Amino acid sequence: NHQVVQILRTRYKKTLLKYFGRFSPQARANVRTVTMDLNFYYQDIVRACFPNAQIVIDRFHMIQMFTRSFNSLRVKVMKTFDKRSRQYQLLKSPWKLYLKKFDELE
């Protein structure tokens, strides 16, 4: 129903496991999906607390990860060309235009 249920003071693994452990195993088994960011511990927590849940990475972090990867590849390819070449200039100058297309996907 898109309502905030609880905001915890920290996002440490121990704190999250303790919080979710307060719910009955049956209630946690009924959880079907969990949307999360790319925090290293979250996947472990979801698997431990919600055995039947499918993990979904939130859209913001997916786009951010894709954008960083694309930009890294663009720079790597750009460096293979001479700095005065048209290819180099096309990859260097309008790079924000390439990334704008990814923002539109969101």
Rank of each mutant, 00 (worst) to 15 (best):
L16M: 15
A29Q: 10
L8E: 11
R32Y: 08
Y19K: 03
Y42F: 15
R28V: 03
V31H: 05
I7R: 13
S69H: 09
T67M: 02
L17F: 04
I57C: 03
R68D: 01
N52P: 04
Q54C: 14
V4H: 06
M78A: 07
I7P: 07
W95K: 06
H61V: 03
R32G: 00
Q6K: 12
L90M: 14
F40N: 12
C49H: 07
V46K: 03
R68W: 02
Q43W: 04
N52G: 01
E106R: 09
N39I: 03
N1K: 12
P25E: 07
Q87T: 09
M36G: 05
R59D: 05
A48I: 07
D103A: 06
A48M: 09
F81Q: 05
L97D: 12
N1D: 14
Y41L: 09
F60S: 03
K100L: 11
R32V: 11
Q54I: 15
I45H: 03
S93L: 12
R11F: 03
D103C: 04
L97I: 12
P51Q: 01
D44E: 10
F23L: 08
K79C: 13
E104W: 09
K92F: 14
Q54S: 14
R32P: 01
Q6S: 10
V5K: 15
N30I: 02
T33W: 12
G21T: 06
D44Y: 05
T33D: 11
Q43K: 12
H2C: 14
N1V: 13
C49L: 07
M78F: 09
L16G: 06
N39H: 10
F81N: 00
G21A: 07
D44T: 05
I63H: 03
V75F: 00
A53G: 01
K79A: 12
K101H: 11
V34D: 02
Y12N: 15
Q6A: 11
W95Y: 15
R84A: 13
E104V: 03
M36H: 05
T15Y: 06
M78R: 11
C49A: 09
T33Q: 14
D37E: 10
L105A: 10
T80M: 10
C49I: 06
V4T: 15
P94Q: 08
V46Y: 01
I55F: 06
Q54T: 14
